[in-house]
Nucleic acid binder design. Structure first.
Lengths: 396, 396
DNA sequence: ACTACTTTCTCCACTCACAGGACAAAGGCG
DNA sequence: CGCCTTTGTCCTGTGAGTGGAGAAAGTAGT
């Protein structure tokens, strides 16, 4: 199949492509209702899009009381690659032009092995998806990395948990390897983008998306656009001080949020509790697996283990305190909680909600939903596909 | 003089008006260099603006080696009213179309007396400025109030320190009284706008403006635009928890930043210290004035009083800790400190800087200036004038 | 004073985006 | 079978905008 070569020639075409992406197939008339263009102008732009091959007309829709309309849809062969690189695992997925996930692979990974090794693995996973017949090539790829990114160039800058990536030209290198356009962003921003596109944040303009995985980060969306900050490190809330002069943190300061709660901190605290004999449930699991993870704590909590529940509650309280501050500051319309620890579920959510509703201003919390993300591990890859499609569906 | 009646008919005209406002008189050729329009089109739009009376051509500029150019400038009779209502005082100023302050009055005031009493005073001050010959009427007015505002309607919502204002239609009422268009915003946002227009933040895209007066607030600017949040309460950082389970605060929670530092907290702590005999300097001033204010603490600190300096340092440390968190979260390109306590000067600034540079991530602080505002009490009124001029200089 | 060159501004013809109406195509319904 | 509705196409008029020619008004050199 021929790959996507053309780009929309103007903002009208870009607008139409995004409508077709987000709303699925549409007739010219339906498109006309959404774009404030005359039917004649619209027909011209659709015609040009048909000529480029970016969209196709396939078949007639059912009549709605008059002449049947032609279905216009994005080229069915378009394929986007979504890659979400985490600290300890990687997700790779293929989507169609409507950003529906056609195939999704997750594999363990150590991001510290550096970009070369990681990309080898990612390319192998992409090849596997291709081999399974889901795609015969990619029209674009979005990449999420667990650290700050200089966005326009797609280059990680001073990423704490992946020092070997500092300055590595991810965008350029992967574009070469894959032979298609590539965009790179922080993994937390992509999760926010994913939940905005297809998850709980669909109708939200200003919202926060807190991702609690190995570390803690926060995606910030202002007026529907991801806010990345001056140097690309916005949302890096893991090292906000939760307890002045509190526990020492790996970063050198004391009392950072991540020293109290994150996937890593939770595993550590659970191990400690198990070794001190505070929880038979956790001790059992430690014995069996050799180590504990956030998932073990979630399982123990589900089984009613008091220690596990306490750990989750305490972590949720700390996190909630920090989020409460952010809510006062940012006054979002929605807060989404996601990431690896979503498995901790409503115990965690309840603790966070309690703190936020108690500490933030009534005006800011009055109508503020605090909810779990609904896409799980798909959020990142959908966000990645959305990122590259936004890029490709804008005027060249 | 005839008041401004027309509004720009399109974005080009709006753009030209703003260029003339921010850059002063310009020739058609100079304007052409800035707007990416052909000279012919530009001449047409300028001609239309001349017809409306929004701009005038007055005289010829010196030759730069060729034909002398005609100076185009905003109508010299345009006058904006800037009003900055604080908790305990009010600033009213008149500006010309270039937002230069022509006259400025400050008077004490108790905002809790409610909108009717306050507006009576404000209107009297405006009349005084008119009587002094600086204006014979106003083409627009910007109003700053110390609380959250539903921005489009210009109505305060649930303002903690001015409960009598809740739901009062400030914009509509003042528009009636003044007979000109009015825009209303939070005082902190207007300070940020003022420093952005004519102060230290002139070239900043994303920045924070922390105003420490009777309370503490923070103006948030994203991409050159003030961010107000979902319900207009963004930047309300006074009740972020600085010390978990710390001092009780008037809001009912414990450990709020404002319980530790603000004009009011500083005055209270200084009074306490004076009564406990910790500082002869402060005790003296308490004796003389009957009460202490932030200005007294500033004076004592300037005189070398150790207790006063300690109070400032401790407050700066608390504030700095909170700002450090905001810097990690928001990753601004600049932090401006302003408000009534700017008189505490570099002792305060040094404490804040120390905390932020120590606690925030290197990537976020690496090139982050933290500076005092340079406009002082003029920031608010200039911001107010800028607010209404932005409104009037946009297509109707 | 005269010429050559520069800058500023105006005028005019041409292009292009776009709207809006007329009209054709294709269906449903009584 | 006529009438109405919906969809899509064609065509013409309008107004925005460009770009070039040239007029206006100056400086600098000879």
């Amino acid at each position: 199949m021929r790959r996507m070569t053309a780009r929309p020639a103007n903002t009208h075409q870009a607008r139409l492509l995004r409508l077709l992406r987000d709303g699925g197939p549409n007739s010219r008339a339906q498109l006309g209702d959404q774009v404030d263009l005359s039917r004649s102008k619209l027909a011209v732009e659709v015609e040009r899009l048909l000529e480029t091959g970016l969209v196709v007309a396939d078949g007639l829709a059912a009549s709605r009381g008059g002449r049947r309309s032609h279905n216009i849809r994005l080229a069915p062969g378009l394929r986007f690659l979504g890659v979400d690189i985490g600290a300890t695992s990687v997700d790779v997925a293929v989507t169609n032009a409507e950003l529906e996930v056609l195939g999704h692979i997750n594999q363990p990974l150590d991001v510290r092995e550096g970009p070369v090794a990681v990309f080898e693995q990612v390319l192998a996973m992409a090849a596997k998806l291709k081999a399974s017949g889901l795609a015969d090539g990619f029209d674009g790829a979005g990449i999420g990395v667990p650290g700050p990114v200089r966005f326009p160039e797609g280059i990680p800058v001073a990423p704490p948990i992946m020092p070997g990536w500092d300055g590595f030209p991810v965008r350029e290198a992967l574009s070469q390897e894959l032979g298609c356009p590539v965009m790179v962003d922080n993994d937390v921003n992509l999760m926010a983008t994913g939940e905005q596109h297809a998850g709980v944040a669909r109708s939200a303009g200003d919202f926060l998306c807190v991702k609690i995985g190995t570390g803690i980060g926060c995606g910030i969306v202002v007026g529907g656009e991801v806010y990345r900050g001056t140097t690309g490190s916005a949302g890096d809330i893991g090292h906000i001080v939760a307890v002045p002069d509190g526990r020492p943190c790996a970063c050198g300061n004391r009392g950072c949020l991540e020293a109290y709660f994150s996937g890593a901190a939770l595993a550590r605290d659970a191990t400690e509790a198990a070794q001190q004999g505070l929880s038979a449930e956790l001790a059992n699991r430690l014995e069996t697996n050799g180590s504990l993870s956030a998932a073990d704590v979630a399982a123990a909590a589900a089984a009613g283990d008091a220690t596990a529940l306490d750990l989750i509650r305490e972590g949720g309280n700390r996190t909630g305190q920090v989020i409460a501050g952010l809510v006062s500051f940012f006054n979002p319309g929605l807060v989404v909680i996601g990431g690896g620890v979503t498995g901790l579920g409503h115990t965690l959510l309840a603790a966070i909600r309690t703190q936020v509703y108690r500490q933030s201003l009534p005006l800011a919390t009055g109508n503020l939903p605090i909810v779990l993300g609904e896409l799980g591990p798909a959020a990142g890859v959908i966000g990645a596909a959305r990122l590259i499609s936004d890029h490709l569906f804008s005027p060249a």
